[in-house]
């Protein structure tokens, strides 16, 4: 029957696609031509094969594990475009919380980390997994919440604000706090504020009541969640600003030394994992701290959101609490 023949033809076609895929799994999406946009099912399948066979070497890949805030704001995508213009490389960006990113790094599954949790970064570096950390940008955390502010925390220090939420929530059903609850850098920061407010996070805070919600999602999703519940949450200012138009939440606490948020990039130590792409990793990090990129980071989002989402680290190492070398010195080859 004709239909049977069609079926066989389809089967052969799929096999062909599969075989192309075997030779070109890396090349079919990594080559600039294939990532270009004219992709329809047929042409992509057709072009994947010749490329896979004619180009001897695949274009270089650089795997970057990043905190969600750098990705959700669109900054990383903008930087990626600028970097790929001048380098024969495809960046593969895996957005995960800082905790997961560090785990990927520790297992040697990525080449570069872009994270924001100084304490855990220090441990990571001390254990020999990370090298050549550079501070690339900073901004501040803020506690955001509904404009009605049922717990009345506006203008408090972050520690007092969390204490007030903790004390009013059991008697006021409108007071809800949504935590990232995912071991991300933001979650770490939240824990450290609880600690400096005098609470034992695991004993006093985690699972304390219905008002303390562990959302378990990225920054953007957590803000959306908090918005639905009219709840408080801790956010970095960059993600908050980039989501602001869709949110009814307002910043209530945005001043306090503990709210500093420093973003760093670092390489995975090639002595730990000899296959990591350290040359391109170094180029990427050095690209991030050039004056041109720094200026771009400091201006990113101004035209859309009216203010920068991140501040440049260039010239701000004292504010960030890091050494001048860590902010400005390119990594030597």
């Amino acid at each position: 029957m004709d239909v049977k023949k069609t079926f066989i033809v389809l089967l052969v076609l799929f096999s062909a696609i599969f075989i192309c895929g075997c030779t070109g799994t890396d090349s079919d999406t990594a080559t600039p031509a294939a990532t270009a946009t004219e992709t329809t099912a047929a042409t992509a399948a057709g072009t994947a094969a010749p490329e896979g066979t004619t180009t001897a070497a695949n274009p270089e890949l650089l795997k970057i594990a990043t905190t969600t805030s750098l990705d959700n704001t669109g900054l990383l995508e903008a930087l990626q475009e600028r970097f790929e213009e001048n380098h024969d490389v495809t960046l593969q960006i895996i957005a995960a919380g800082t905790g997961k990113a560090l785990e990927y790094g520790q297992r040697g599954d990525v080449d570069v980390l872009m994270v924001h949790d100084r304490a855990r970064e220090d441990t990571f570096i001390d254990e020999g997994y990370g090298i050549n950390r550079r501070g690339i940008a900073y901004n501040y955390f803020m506690i955001v919440g509904p404009e009605s502010d049922p717990a009345g925390i506006a203008g408090m220090t972050p520690e007092d604000a969390l204490t007030t939420i903790y004390e009013t929530a059991p008697t006021n059903a409108d007071v809800v706090f949504i935590s990232r609850g995912d071991n991300s850098g933001t979650h770490s920061k939240e824990k450290s504020i609880w600690t400096s407010a005098g609470y034992n996070y695991t004993a006093d805070v985690e699972g304390v009541g219905d008002w303390y919600v562990e959302g378990g999602q990225g920054m953007g999703a957590t803000l959306t969640h908090a918005n639905e519940k009219l709840a408080y949450t801790l956010s970095d200012s960059g993600t908050y600003l980039s989501y602001k138009t869709d949110l009814d939440l307002v910043p209530l606490v945005d001043e306090g030394d503990s709210l500093l948020n420093v973003y760093s990039a670092m390489m995975i130590n090639p002595e730990m994992y000899d296959y990591v792409n350290s040359d391109m990793a170094r180029e990427w990090i050095n690209f991030l701290i050039t004056p041109e990129t720094q200026e771009f980071i400091g201006e990113f989002g101004v035209d859309t959101y009216g203010q920068p989402l991140f501040f440049e680290s260039l010239g701000n190492y004292e504010v960030m609490g890091i050494s001048q070398a860590e902010a400005e010195d390119p990594i030597p080859a």
């Binding site: 089967l11 799929f14 096999s15 696609i17 599969f18 895929g21 999406t29 990532t35 946009t37 004219e38 992709t39 329809t40 099912a41 992509a44 399948a45």
Partner: peptide, 19 residues
Amino acid sequence: PEVYEIAFRSIYITFTATL
């Protein structure tokens, strides 16, 4: 075009896996 690319990738991965 990005939507097409994503859709094609979905089909490609799942066809191959099913096969």
